[in-house]
């Protein structure tokens, strides 16, 4: 049978990571350009805000897909994972700043009230706050300083972040629609893949049990 990892992994090893960042920001730039030049329909702001949010979630999911793909197919995108994750963080920042600057336009009393009154804002903001330390420690220096075990443990927060992001999406809608739920379903599958079911069944869940399966 055709050996997928043997074919792909040497190629992937040769591809540099910087194009991921470059390609990653293209949709944001294009959407922003369309929004400014009034080419996103009647309500360009809402379209821009929603698309940036969708891209953030999709990139987050892509980041969490690296490990399952490696385990299931042997193909390793591990060297791109940091770029995926950081690009996801950039989109979260774009999405959040669009909300603050263009949508809420620094109406601080409303923004502050939203931060404690609105479940979807609380969830979204928590996701952003939890993702920030992951972005800050995504460099080699932090990995070395924290040690692989500690670093892994911290970066398990990304499982929580993707769930928070998906629930945030579900709650923005006025009625129950299928596409936010599709995101939630994918997020749940990606996270449940990390749960050491066998160990759980045998009883006793240790931290090492999860990190053994890795990020």
């Amino acid at each position: 049978m055709f050996n997928l990892p043997a074919f792909f992994n040497p190629i992937l090893r040769k591809v540099p990571t910087w194009p991921v960042y470059l390609l990653g920001v293209v949709p944001a730039v294009v959407y922003f350009y369309w929004a400014v030049t009034n080419q996103l329909g009647t309500d360009p702001l809402q379209m821009l805000e929603r698309q940036l949010g969708r891209w953030a979630l999709q990139l987050l999911m892509l980041t969490l897909l690296v490990t399952p793909v490696r385990k299931l197919t042997g193909i390793s995108f591990l060297k791109f994972r940091r770029a995926f994750g950081l690009t996801a963080f950039f989109y979260v920042v774009f999405h959040l700043s669009t909300w603050l600057v263009l949508d809420k336009q620094f109406f601080w009393n409303e923004i502050l009230a939203d931060l404690y009154k609105r479940p979807y804002i609380i969830l979204g903001m928590t996701g952003f706050l939890l993702l920030t330390p992951l972005a800050l420690t995504s460099n080699k220096f932090s990995l070395r300083r924290m040690g692989p075990l500690g670093w892994n443990r911290l970066h398990r927060l990304s499982y929580l972040v993707v769930i928070l992001g998906a629930v945030h999406f579900v709650l923005v809608r006025k009625v129950w629609e299928s596409d936010p739920f599709l995101y939630l379903l994918i997020a749940l599958i990606l996270v449940s893949y990390r749960i050491p079911w066998k160990r759980l069944r045998r009883g006793g869940l240790s931290g090492a049990g999860i990190s053994a399966r890795g990020g």
Binding site: P44, F107, N109, D114, R118
Partner: peptide
């Protein structure tokens, strides 16, 4: 009186493009 999920204190006029004032 807010909608439980968002404020009703202000509104976004539609039709003026991306930078329309709230």
């Amino acid at each position: 009186v807010d909608h439980p999920r968002w404020t009703q204190a202000s509104e976004r006029p539609i039709g003026g493009g991306l930078f329309t004032r709230r």
